[in-house]
Design a protein around this nucleic acid. Structure first.
Lengths: 192, 192
DNA sequence: TGCATTTACCTAAAGCATTTAGGCAAATGC
DNA sequence: GCATTTGCCTAAATGCTTTAGGTAAATGCA
C-alpha cells in the first residue's frame, strides 16, 4: 500500500483548490479523498471531521487574503490605499471564488477571534489613518467598509450585476470614489 | 393511513419556519418530513428535490421581504424612506434569520430574473428618487445600497460586530446617516 | 543491519440524507 | 356506488460521514 503523503496542510490546500473548481459548498471529504486516490476514512487521521476540514479551508483563505491585503497597502495611504485594499478582495473573488466563499463562511466566535479575520479589521482601520476619523466613527467606518466589500463580492459572484449596464467594473470604481468622498467628509451627526 | 394534507405551499412555509429555527443550511427533506410526521418520499410529490425545496424557500423569503419593503416605503421619501427601507432588511434578519439566509442564497440567473429580487432593485431605485441622481450614478448607488444591506446583515448575523464597542445598533444608525449624506452629495468624477 | 514502534492508509460497518419505483387506500367526480 | 385520481406508503439503491480495528510502510534506535 503506497503512501500518498497526506497531511492536514495538504488536505486543506487541496480542499481550497477543489473549492475554486467546484464551489465551496460542494467540497466533501469523499471528493477530496477521490482526488488523492485514497479511501475516505484515511482523511480522518488528518482532520477531525468534515466541518473541521471546511473550517480549516476558511482559515487558510482568510490568511491568504490578509497576506495579499497587507502587501497591497504597504507603502500606500489615503485613497490609494483604499483602492488597493478593496481591489484585493474583488480580485480574490475572481481568482479564487471557492476560497472567497470559504472566507465568508460563518465561524464560531472563538475560532473567528483567533483567525486572520482580526488582521482584516486591523488593516481596514489602518486604511482610515489616511482620513480624519476619530472613535467611534472610525469603527463605524470599518464596519461600513467591511459590509461593502463583503456584500459587493457576494452579490457580484452571484451574478447580481451581470447582463445589465453599466458594467460591474465601472460601478466598482465609482463606489470606491464614493467611499473615498464619504470618508473624507464623514457626517458628524444625524441629519434629518 | 391518515392524510396530513401536504402541499408545495405548506412545505415551503414550514421549511421557512424550520430555517429560522435551525438555520437554512440545516433544512433537509428528512427533517421537514419528520416535522409533518410523514415519510420522506412523500415530499417528492410536492417538490422536485431537495434543491427545489431550498429554492422555493428562497423565493418565498424574497417575496415576503419585498412585501415588507413595499409597505415600509409607501408614503415616505428621502432619508425617511431610506431608513425605513434599510430597517426592513435588518429587522427581517433578526426576526427571521433562516429566511434571511435563504434570501441570500445564490439562484441561477433565470430563476433570479423571475424572482422578487427584481422588485427589490426597483424599490431601491425608487428610494433614490428622493436624491438627485441621474444614470448611471443611480445604478451605481443601487448596487452600493444592495451591497451594504446585504453585507451588513450577513456580517452582523455572523456575529462580526458583537462583543465590541460601539454596539451594532449605533453603527447601523451612523451608516444610514453616512449613506444619506453620500447620496445627497454623490461625487461626480474620480477625485484622486 | 535488525527489530520495535509509530504512522499512514486500509477494510468493514453503521447511520443518515436523497431519490426513484411501485403499491394501496383515501378523496373526488360522475 | 363505482371509477379515477391523488396522497402517502414501503422498498431499495446510492452516496456522504464517521468510528473501530487491522496491516504494512516508515522511522528510530541498538
Amino acid at each position: 500500500m503506497a503512501r500518498v503523503g497526506l497531511s492536514t496542510e495538504r488536505l486543506v490546500r487541496a480542499g481550497a483548490e477543489l473549492a475554486d473548481e467546484i464551489g465551496f459548498e460542494q467540497v466533501t471529504a469523499s471528493e477530496l479523498a477521490r482526488r488523492f486516490d485514497v479511501k475516505v476514512a484515511s482523511l480522518y487521521s488528518h482532520v477531525k471531521n468534515s466541518q473541521d476540514l471546511k473550517t480549516r479551508i476558511t482559515l487558510f483563505a482568510l490568511e491568504e487574503l490578509a497576506d495579499r491585503a497587507a502587501d497591497a497597502i504597504a507603502g500606500r495611504a489615503g485613497k490609494d490605499a483604499l483602492v488597493a485594499f478593496a481591489n484585493v478582495y474583488r480580485d480574490y473573488e475572481r481568482e479564487h471564488p471557492g476560497r472567497a466563499a470559504a472566507a465568508r463562511m460563518r465561524l464560531d466566535p472563538r475560532t473567528a477571534a483567533a483567525s486572520a479575520g482580526v488582521r482584516h479589521a486591523q488593516m481596514t482601520r489602518a486604511i482610515l489613518r489616511g482620513y480624519e476619523l476619530t472613535e467611534p466613527d472610525a469603527t463605524h467606518a470599518v464596519r461600513l467598509l467591511g459590509s461593502v466589500f463583503h456584500g459587493y463580492a457576494s452579490l457580484e459572484s452571484a451574478g447580481g450585476f451581470s447582463h445589465s449596464a453599466p458594467d460591474s467594473e465601472e460601478t466598482w470604481t465609482r463606489i470606491l470614489d464614493a467611499l473615498d468622498a464619504l470618508l473624507r467628509n464623514w457626517p458628524t451627526a444625524s441629519t434629518p
